[in-house]
Design a protein around this nucleic acid. Structure first.
Ligand SMILES: [Mn+2]
Ligand SMILES: [Mn+2]
Ligand SMILES: [Zn+2]
Ligand SMILES: [Zn+2]
Lengths: 140, 140
DNA sequence: ACTTGTTTGCAACATCGTTGCAAAATTATT
DNA sequence: AATAATTTTGCAACGATGTTGCAAACAAGT
């Protein structure tokens, strides 16, 4: 498992450091989007804030993780599927934010519908954010 | 014109102050979404930062303006055209952000498509953000 | 083991947003 | 119109978030 994570770094021409291994591991273990603050807490506050910022930025640039905008103006990050690379992001799926627990999910299987925008505008990328209640928080 | 803006405030049980008139006027004159920083600049830096924050918050609560999340993690605000009220927002239209000039538009005529989310999840609100090039920035 | 280039942690700084409180402005009442 | 009650404003102080420069620590290639 740790070996697989090491490989991800190597395949992206990144030095293998404790910091990067630990952060990447957090994304693999928690199957949800993580914020900078989440990582700071989950890592036991061992890493410097600045290092986390720089690591996340590096991972985004390499196509290892992608950013998700949220209505409350905080960035969260989630693992990309295979076909993203340096400068190439193809995370064309819907994102779901639970209003109860705050968890952000990548709905990989839910694709983005096509949007008819007015004449004169040209679309390059579409983000769909769904707010609601997730399956864990659903009242039974 | 100024009279109409005064009425909006009165209809929402808000005191009519220079500050609120000026900010509301900015939204009516510029037909696009404005950020806190935009308002600070457009108003000639006459109003205190804090007052602008509080005014925007009040307007959102009253259903006069709505917030728009953006991919670069900054909030912009735009007038509610539909009949939004205190606690009731119905701004179900697509938002377009121009990557060239940074302008955010409300595409009032472009409605939100229905999204099929997985079983167990329940959707309350959907935000659709389209990034691209707007009609003003289009290469001719 | 040594060298080279990269990464980290720290400090210092900048920006953004919030809160408490007294002064000022607005609205309600006499 | 004058006064009282309420609301809003501006300031100061603070906290949270994000950025940059730089020297020490580290990882990778020889
Ligand atoms: Mn995603
Ligand atoms: Mn809008
Ligand atoms: Zn939930
Ligand atoms: Zn434009």
């Amino acid at each position: 498992m740790d070996e697989a994570i090491t490989d991800i770094l190597k395949h992206n021409q990144l030095s293998v450091t404790d910091n990067r291994l630990k952060i990447l591991e957090l994304f693999h273990n928690n199957n949800k989007a993580l914020s900078h603050a989440d990582i700071e807490h989950l890592s036991g506050k061992n890493f410097d804030r600045v290092t986390i910022y720089r690591t996340l930025q590096t991972f985004v640039e390499k196509g290892i993780i992608h950013t998700i905008p949220t209505a409350d103006n905080s960035i969260v990050y989630a693992l990309c599927k295979e076909d993203c690379g340096e400068g190439h992001h193809h995370d064309d799926h819907v994102h779901f934010i639970c209003d109860k627990c705050g968890t952000t999910y990548c709905l990989e299987q839910t694709s983005i519908p096509s949007i008819n925008i007015p004449k004169g505008f040209s679309a390059h990328r579409v983000n769909v954010l769904v707010n609601g209640v997730c399956k864990n928080c659903r009242p039974s």
